[in-house]
Design a protein around this nucleic acid. Structure first.
Lengths: 138, 138
DNA sequence: CTGATATGTAACCATCTGGTTACTAATGAC
DNA sequence: GTCATTAGTAACCAGATGGTTACATATCAG
């Protein structure tokens, strides 16, 4: 799953109205735009923008049927994130809250420090000031 | 999990830089702000804003230690969404892609229609027009 | 055809987002 | 104490987001 696709999915889900729309379409597949509008106080155009966002994220599919646009829920993107998380973070599901414990109790003096800080890039100044001295290594 | 909390989590995850930051902190718990900055070309202030967003979403915790702010990953919010999805959408994990098939093949004449369209709210006009006249006569 | 319904498009506006620079404050090393 | 380092705050800016109104098009019911 490309980062852009992921952005689209998370951003689409990052709005309560859109999550509600998703729930509604999931509950009544084949409904049209006005059906969705009936649930909200915002304008039809606003609803359509939400629908576009959800379609961009591929969380909804739609099909033109006469005057209507029929809407359907699509679980695939959620499934893909689900899969990523279950693999990516699977160890954490096992650990549960142990990371919190670590953060509070375990971290006193040790600093695991960096893993691969590549560029040491400098925006303007700020990092230029660092050139002279370096410490904390020996 | 409150809708606002959910918004915060999804919006925090809806940005590739923030997801990368999350990965970095997860890989090196206890790192400080400058450690994170070393991975990016953007300014430290921009990184801090991302860190604030992640802390708002409770995806990161931090602890002030001398000059440094030490950062730790927190899996709880992701775990909660994970749990919501596995229960909320569990049937869909079974169905897999059948909803797509339905959308393309199954939906021909039937319209499951609404489930509880409440208000029939009207923003300004648009829905007012549904009772009386029309204007498109010129 | 006439007119109502359903969707689509365009232009506008306020606020949020993600970035910047400039400056301030606290702490650690010598 | 002095000064570099780390973090925080404030003000600014371009572009995205989420909302609006006005208008346009397409289809369905007579």
């Amino acid at each position: 799953m490309t980062p852009d696709a992921m952005d689209a999915v998370f951003l689409a889900l990052g709005n309560a109205t859109r999550r509600r729309i998703l729930d509604i379409v999931k509950a009544s597949p084949g409904c049209n735009v006005n059906d969705i509008c009936a649930y909200f106080e915002i304008s039809r155009i606003a609803v359509m923008k939400h629908l576009h966002a959800l379609e961009d994220a591929k969380l909804l599919t739609s099909e033109k049927r006469g005057r209507d646009r029929r809407l359907y829920f699509n679980a695939v993107p959620i499934r893909m994130i689900y899969d990523r998380w279950t693999t990516e973070f699977s160890s954490l599901w096992a650990e549960r809250l142990t990371r919190i414990k670590y953060a509070v109790e375990g971290a006193s003096e040790t600093r695991p420090a960096e893993t691969k800080p590549s560029t040491r890039g400098s925006i303007k100044a700020e990092k230029q000031a660092k050139r002279g001295k370096r410490k904390r290594d020996g």
